[in-house]
Amino acid sequence: MCPVAESYCMDGIHDVGGMDGFGSLSIGRDDGDNSDTDNDSDTDGDSGINDGDGSTDDEYDPFHEQWEEVTYSLFVATLGNGIANIDEFRHSIERMDPDRYLAASYYDRWVTGLSRLLLETDTIDFEDFQARTEAFDTGEGTLPERTEPGLVDELAAGVADAYGGEGTVRDPRFEAGETVRVRNHYPEGHTRCPRYVRRARGTVEAHRGAPVLPDANAHGDPVTEPLYEVAFTAQELWGEAGDPNVTVTLDLWESYLAPATAESSDTPDDDAEDVGDTDDFERADAHRRA
């Protein structure tokens, strides 16, 4: 468990759906520039996107800097060795300071999250990490050379395990076609229920098995729970400004949802009465407090 209370922070800066003001994507779409000539890592950040992300396979270029390739490998090593699962990894990024999150490039966020996980699990020692970072910063760092054929396959298998997989499907509480309301719930810690759908009414499109509940799995409890595709109209989410011909569909776990019964659920406080089964949330919360 993460020992610092404020690091539980869930409604973090990563939850950007529906926010305004992030500006243009400034995609260099038609200029044919498929090279990354700028070595400043900040150009892979959130404003400059003219980085050769071509839209065809010929131009496919997933990494723009060598350290980004390394970072992806660190992710595979961290999950593949069972040091953290995918939800713990996501949560490690969500706990970044908001200003850092926005300023950092995508893979910088990954390095930050991974270093947090490796330190919290005592996989590495902070003093070693600090000294080693300084060495590479001043050009004095050296990379050990070590080959281990077969390791990559072990890591791939470990990564698959780190995704938590599918649980036993118990009877789903909601049926396709049913109207549901997203609970007015603001848990501490990780969740995959974005702010912008909370308290909104949507329609269950389909039941999608019973994968592990991220809210619990990110805190060490791999409980599984029915998952639903739930569709919302844009006007339900954004009011009168919503486009009448837009729907937004999310995959939401059962404990995020309550039945949208009549008038009672129009006030958030009534959600508690609607929800008979809050066990998983309570369980996840208990883990966070532990």
Partner: peptide, 16 residues
């Protein structure tokens, strides 16, 4: 520290 130095530090530690 820039992300490259931090990534290389982690890489070297995990390889060790």
């Amino acid at each position: 520290f820039d992300p490259e130095s931090r990534a290389r530090a982690l890489q070297s530690l995990l390889i060790e």
